[in-house]
Design a protein around this nucleic acid. Structure first.
Lengths: 210, 210
DNA sequence: TTGTTATTTTGACACCGTCAAGATAGACAG
DNA sequence: CTGTCTATCTTGACGGTGTCAAAATAACAA
């Protein structure tokens, strides 16, 4: 006699004992909650209920709540990395447009998902030595950003006024501050963002040709 | 006849029924905990115990835990405002030095108290409409920063390339990003900070004389 | 079939924010 | 001084949270 011919579940509802892809489901649901209700809105118990699983099931896929949050943050950096890669690999794109697309794409991500963005740059995950995989993912993303300035240097056939690394650090700082300005509407109205971003790009380019 | 010359307590131990200055004591202790153990390290119950008071006593001075956090954040902005005021009011200081002192002072605060700084700019307090007093304090601080650029314009006797407000927005963005870079050691080593800050100042000044 | 292992669950614990009701003491009017 | 008022503080209680330990379950390999 074969195994039970029923599908994976023992009960009739769509709640098989083994979820099949719990880890990914938890990640997706977490990102959803964080993006819509903020970081404080995420509790493991509510998350488990949403996914349709018991409260402690997530612990077999993430050591901690912190580990889960780190995974969500890492996914964010992965998206940014993907964005930068697309810009860099578009050979036909003039340098100015590359920079503009990178900047605007970055700002769009930050303003579309402000709470996830905050998680990505929060102290919590950066101070915690256990989240080194997350930190590696983030640093990879930044290295890609540095690459843009390196390609500028190559293209110009002469060294820039500052090293590509230093340029990347200062300009990313501006970008990061802008993102916060915009997403919280702290000091600037959201409508001004495009305008301010253009000023920032001008500023970056003035650094390049200094 | 003056008020009772004895100290404030009625019982022999240092646990008078009426604390006398609970609100300030709570604020100080909160800031201490936040600065040393991070935002997550602060619980109202532990805080109450530290101050030597029952768990619900704080609720007579702060509506919420959020209200307490907002007060701590506001105190941070008050410190920044004080810093900027000192720089601005020092008439003898050349403009370049004013800018440098403001920048360095800001960065010092951010790196000395990274967790409080994060609280000050976190989504939580900015999205919450109930924290309008905190938000007002913060905006006052920024207005003072704009003033520095206005005084630049006055001093130069000619309009700057961009409006003082826009300049303040972009340069503050850079500063904010730098602060994060530095305090978390996210992408830059802490030692590089002074160097990077100098680059940023150069960049700001190039914007001024553009 | 049998045993091994990866998943998931139930039960339990300590901690948390916060509300309601009562206790206390300082202020103030008579 | 006496009595009342009110701000301040406490105790008790409730629901929610992260997480550990132990048991249950399912997939899989021999």
């Amino acid at each position: 006699m074969t195994k039970d011919t029923m599908d994976l579940s023992t009960n009739s509802a769509n709640h098989p004992y083994h979820h099949g892809n719990l880890r990914q489901a938890l990640l997706n649901a977490s990102m959803d909650i964080i993006r819509n209700q903020g970081i404080a809105g995420l509790s493991l118990r509510k998350l488990a209920e949403v996914v349709g699983v018991s409260r402690t099931a997530p612990y077999h896929h993430f050591k901690d709540k912190d580990a889960l949050l780190a995974a969500v943050a890492a996914q964010g950096f992965a998206e940014l990395t993907h964005l930068l890669n697309q810009v860099i690999q578009d050979e036909a794109l003039p340098l100015h447009d590359k920079l503009e697309q990178a900047v605007m794409g970055y700002l769009r991500f930050a303003t579309d998902h402000p709470t996830q963005y905050e998680l990505m740059f929060g102290q919590m995950l950066w101070q915690d030595a256990k989240q080194d995989e997350f930190q590696r993912t983030a640093k990879d993303c930044f290295r890609l950003y540095v690459k843009i300035f390196e390609s500028f240097e190559q293209d110009k056939q002469q060294p820039l006024a500052e090293s590509p690394l230093r340029l990347a650090q200062v300009t990313w700082s501006t970008l990061h501050g802008l993102a916060r300005l915009a997403s919280d509407g702290i000091f600037a109205k959201k409508d001004d963002l495009t305008d301010i971003a253009q000023t920032a790009i001008k500023q970056i380019e003035s650094l390049l040709s200094q």
